[in-house]
Simulated assay, not measured.
Amino acid sequence: MKLIIGNKNYSSWSLRGWLACKQSGLHFDEITVPLYGDEWDSQRASNDLAPSHGKVPILWDGDAVVWDSMAIVEYLADKVGRDRFWPKADDARAMARSMVAEMHSSFFALRRACPMNVRMRVEGVTLGDDVRADIVRVLTLWAEARARFGGGGPFLFGTFSAADVFYAPIVSRFLTYGIGVPGFAQAYMQAVWEHEWMQQWIHAAQTEEWVIEQFEAPVK
């Protein structure tokens, strides 16, 4: 398999696709396409990216091509067994799937105001009411998952799962923009940030040579 991703410092959806591949336990090669670089337009039209209309991440597995991070999770779960990605119990699995779907389709205000930037730390950010509402919703979901199903470990459903794959970029955003969170959320964020795979991603992001200026300016 090969996974095509964008810059590790900025590309939240690439992080999700990459973590999904790591969670699968299958070998894969990664190819980085620098976002918005001089050759971005030509690379978007390349054979590797064309099936996804030039978006990342995109997974190639022989003749099979899978774009969209949620589709990548489901494709890999079909290959290696769904229990590797989803809780076994019906009630926990139902909540995990719902949380992933909500992350996939919501929180637009938070995404716009606080783009992912692994390397950056910003102090004194002023956030609008819509962004604060997204933050409260995320924390509410985390609190319920941890309270109901988190007894088996430090992650949302105990052990690392698709839910953590999808909320890992939110952890990065909260850290970048100094979002204050309650103690249970701090503990969860620390577990995600210190996870072996996240540390690999963070180290690679910190050593990348690419800088996208539009994502470097502090949020007003």
Results as ranks from 00 to 15, higher is better:
K2L: 12
L3K: 06
L3M: 12
L3V: 10
I4L: 14
G6Y: 04
S12I: 01
W13V: 01
S14T: 08
S14K: 06
R16H: 03
W18K: 09
L19D: 00
C21A: 13
C21W: 03
K22E: 08
Q23K: 14
S24H: 00
S24N: 06
G25C: 05
G25K: 00
F28D: 00
F28C: 03
F28P: 00
T32S: 05
P34T: 15
L35N: 11
Y36F: 15
D38H: 05
E39F: 14
E39Q: 15
W40V: 11
W40K: 07
S42V: 11
A45V: 02
D48M: 13
A50D: 09
S52D: 07
P57K: 10
D61V: 09
D63A: 15
D63H: 10
A64H: 02
A64Y: 01
V65E: 06
W67Y: 07
M70A: 06
A71N: 04
V73T: 03
V73R: 00
E74V: 04
Y75N: 10
V80S: 08
G81A: 08
D83E: 15
R84Q: 04
F85N: 06
W86M: 06
P87R: 09
K88G: 10
K88E: 14
D91A: 15
S98D: 07
V100R: 01
F107Q: 02
F107D: 00
F108R: 06
A109R: 01
L110T: 00
R112M: 06
R112T: 04
R112L: 07
A113D: 07
M116Q: 14
V118Y: 07
V118K: 05
R119Y: 11
M120P: 00
V122D: 03
G124V: 12
V125K: 07
V125R: 07
T126V: 12
T126S: 12
T126D: 11
G128N: 04
V131D: 09
V131G: 14
D134K: 06
D134A: 13
I135D: 10
L141I: 01
E144N: 08
A145D: 00
R146P: 01
A147M: 07
G150I: 02
G150Q: 07
G151Y: 12
L156S: 02
G158Q: 05
T159L: 02
A163T: 05
A163W: 05
V165H: 03
V165C: 05
F166P: 01
P169L: 00
I170L: 06
I179K: 03
P182M: 02
G183Q: 12
G183C: 08
G183P: 02
Q186L: 14
M189S: 09
A191D: 11
A191F: 10
A191C: 13
H195L: 06
E196S: 14
W197L: 01
Q199S: 09
Q200I: 08
Q200K: 11
Q200S: 10
Q200H: 10
W201R: 08
H203G: 05
H203F: 13
H203I: 07
T207S: 10
E208G: 05
W210R: 13
V211N: 09
I212E: 03
E213M: 08
A217Y: 10
P218R: 14
V219Y: 11
